[in-house]
Design a protein around this nucleic acid. Structure first.
Lengths: 216, 216
DNA sequence: AGGGCCAATTCGTGATCACATTCGCGCCAT
DNA sequence: ATGGCGCGAATGTGATCACGAATTGGCCCT
């Protein structure tokens, strides 16, 4: 090829761009569990060589977003029930902590924004849009947790979401739910009331209910 | 070069070997905070080209074991006080959970092994060997947590240890402690007694005490 | 008709190279 | 003596190639 008309984007290294795009796809559940990817395929999709694709994939494997077969092939993970339970337990551990830390900093403007996002969540539920639902749901949680000023803990929580992404989409698509997000309303009520125990419980319940859908 | 007399190790890809070696060095605190690494330097050290070195580094950056400057340079992280507090909070969240899960599976042989490891910890304290102390301390915790049968949670805990590695070594080296690990004895006592609340408290205290040494 | 075997294709791995950027160090001017 | 400037060395990035292993699909044998 050797065209290279693209000198550099300072923050936009090619591998970074590929990484972000794949990460978003995986976290939003746009890839089904067990989907297999190839370095050359990724490279062609993003118009780069294998090298940046390899680095992006390596990063995602390190985060648990992709699985590496013994021969080096990569695919989205197919989670066992035990692993799903573990990841749900991690959400139940991390997210109440983030909520508690965010609570004293949650002023009215934040709650308004959360309610707007929550409205979007309801729309996605009504529209039966699994990927849209996941995206809005994550935005709801992330918007709240960003106020916790705890980037290391938030990064851990996002890693868990990432690992759950493909499986969550498959689960949500399988059982077409019509319920609006009840727990989100509880979260908002507890935020308004400044009720920390209630907030922790609501967040914990919301995080764990994804696990209930596993019982089949 | 083009020698390549080394066909393949099935599990021993070069980048894997480099990754494991660097990871161990970082987790054991053999690299001081702020140490800068170069891809060519790593490659020369392990007798590989830049490619496997790059992949290993990319993985470690994704795990938070190394930091990436804006120009792509990598170095061991220099943690802020806030970040150390966050990581200590993560240990305080994750490790009691792992201990609780390990408790019903902790039979006598395991406790014996933990006591042997703990003896090794005391030796390292007496010897003022910071790296050796960290290594033994981690082995103590990992040996216990392996019984929890919770690989995802354990992986998260190890990621936290990894991020704390260089800083821990610097802290331990700075204040030469002579105390034997009191909290480890409490952990062992709670294990023997089957005392879950006591075990959780002892583990939590042990995890957090690394934070106390930050107050300077 | 079904299953196992072989070959062609596909794929990951690692090496090497070109290139732009960045870092570091010494020199010169003030 | 000191501070800024510039040039050379060093570094990360991405492309490409060679190679061996693994996968896949078709063909033949039973």
């Amino acid at each position: 090829m050797m065209i290279s008309p693209r000198p550099v984007d300072l923050t936009g290294a090619a591998h970074e761009r590929v990484y972000r795009a794949l990460r978003t796809q995986i976290m939003h559940g746009e890839l089904p569990p067990g989907e297999s990817l190839t370095l050359r395929g990724i490279g062609k999709q993003f118009e780069v060589s294998m090298t940046p694709a390899r680095e992006a994939v390596r990063r995602l494997v390190a985060e648990g977003a992709l699985t590496l077969s013994s021969s080096g092939r990569v695919s989205t993970p197919e989670l066992s029930n035990d692993r799903i339970e573990e990841l749900a337990a991690l959400r139940a551990l991390l997210e109440p902590e983030l909520a508690t830390r965010a609570l004293p900093r949650a002023h009215l403007a934040l709650i308004d924004r959360l309610e707007a996002i929550n409205h979007g969540v309801s729309q996605m539920v009504a529209r039966q849009d699994a990927t849209g639902y996941i995206r809005m749901n994550l935005e709801f949680h992330r918007t709240l947790y960003l106020r916790a000023q705890a980037p290391a803990i938030l990064a851990m929580a996002e890693t868990v979401w990432l690992q759950l992404g493909p499986t969550m989409a498959a689960l949500y698509a399988r059982l077409n739910r019509t319920e609006p997000p009840h727990n989100h309303k509880l979260i908002l009520a507890a935020l308004k009331a400044g009720d920390d125990p209630g907030l922790r419980l609501a967040v914990r319940t919301d995080a764990i209910q994804g696990l209930r859908m596993l019982r089949n």
